[in-house]
Amino acid sequence: MKITILQTGDVPAPLRPQFGDYSRMFERMFDSISDSFEYDLVVVNANDPLPDPTEMTAIVITGSPAGVYDDLPWIEPLRQFIRKAYGAGIPMLGICFGHQIMADALGGEVRKSEKGWGVGRHSYSVVDRPDFMADAPESLAIACSHQDQVIVPPEAAKVILSTPFTPNAGLYYSNEKALSFQPHPEFKDDYALALSELRREALGAEKADRAAASFSTPSDSDLLSRYIVDFFRQAVA
């Protein structure tokens, strides 16, 4: 299966030599589950032209430091791309910013949350179980790093992951071809910790320390990654 990765942000420069780009993190995530994937890359935030989504097999939209409300030249074309892909039933996954821009493009509301930063490992309640998550436990512990949130999901979206801090943390769409999550299953713990430490001044010492301590909770990223692969297999079939 060929996955087209739409990279919408860059790993911060101080961390890039060690951790590489977000596209590579997703490739490693998928390759850890199966060796059946191939990848194309479109660096959207560098203004690479967006191909016709109807010619794609599957799409991943990455995280980004940008907000859906930012006046950037690539934001509106990406919205139009998402709407066209959704209308054509092309399997599509959004993570963090990808989760937010999908919701925004398809009729939801996204903004910077008054709750502030969500960082560290959060435990997300599984509130609905699509077929590809039929064996999901009661909760999934996944790394996150965000200020913006989906405040109101699109009408076509069902909430599948939720916390009191991030009520709309996972969305599965009624066409059964679109899925998105606020947390980052593609992040390894060393990167998630390094990212929170890089943002220590913005977070404040107390929140940064809590984020660091939260990584003592075992990660469920591998399990969520398996669900994502099963989603793509089901949606492409």
Rank of each mutant, 00 (worst) to 15 (best):
M1I: 02
K2Q: 14
T4D: 03
I5D: 08
L6Y: 04
Q7G: 04
T8N: 05
G9F: 02
D10N: 14
P12A: 05
A13W: 00
P14A: 03
L15C: 10
F19S: 09
G20W: 02
F26W: 08
R28V: 02
R28I: 03
M29P: 01
F30N: 03
S36M: 11
E38A: 12
D40G: 14
L41H: 12
V44C: 09
A46C: 05
A46M: 09
N47T: 06
D48K: 02
D48V: 09
D48W: 02
D48N: 12
P49Q: 06
P49H: 09
P51S: 10
P53D: 01
P53L: 00
T54I: 14
A58G: 13
I59Y: 07
S64F: 03
A66L: 05
A66H: 12
A66T: 08
V68Y: 04
V68P: 02
D70Q: 02
L72M: 07
P73D: 12
I75Q: 09
I75N: 06
L78T: 11
R83L: 11
K84H: 11
A85Y: 11
G87N: 08
G87V: 01
G87R: 10
M92T: 13
L93P: 02
G94L: 09
G94T: 10
G94V: 04
H99L: 00
H99F: 00
G107A: 10
G107H: 05
G108S: 07
G108C: 04
E109R: 15
E109V: 15
V110W: 02
R111V: 00
E114L: 04
K115S: 11
G116N: 08
G116W: 07
G116S: 04
G118E: 10
V119I: 09
G120E: 06
G120I: 11
S125K: 12
V127S: 07
D128Q: 12
R129S: 04
F132I: 04
A134L: 05
P137K: 07
P137S: 01
P137C: 05
S139G: 06
L140T: 06
A143N: 11
C144R: 02
H146T: 10
Q149P: 07
A157M: 04
T163M: 03
P164I: 07
P164L: 06
F165Q: 13
F165D: 13
Y172A: 14
Y173H: 10
S174H: 14
S174Q: 15
N175R: 08
E176A: 14
F181H: 02
P185Y: 01
D190I: 01
D190N: 11
A192H: 03
L193P: 00
L193Q: 15
L193M: 15
S196H: 10
E197L: 12
E201K: 05
A202E: 15
E206D: 15
K207C: 01
A208P: 06
D209S: 13
D209N: 13
R210P: 00
R210E: 14
A211S: 14
S214T: 05
S216Q: 12
S219K: 07
D220K: 06
L224T: 02
I228T: 14
D230K: 08
F232C: 11
A235N: 03
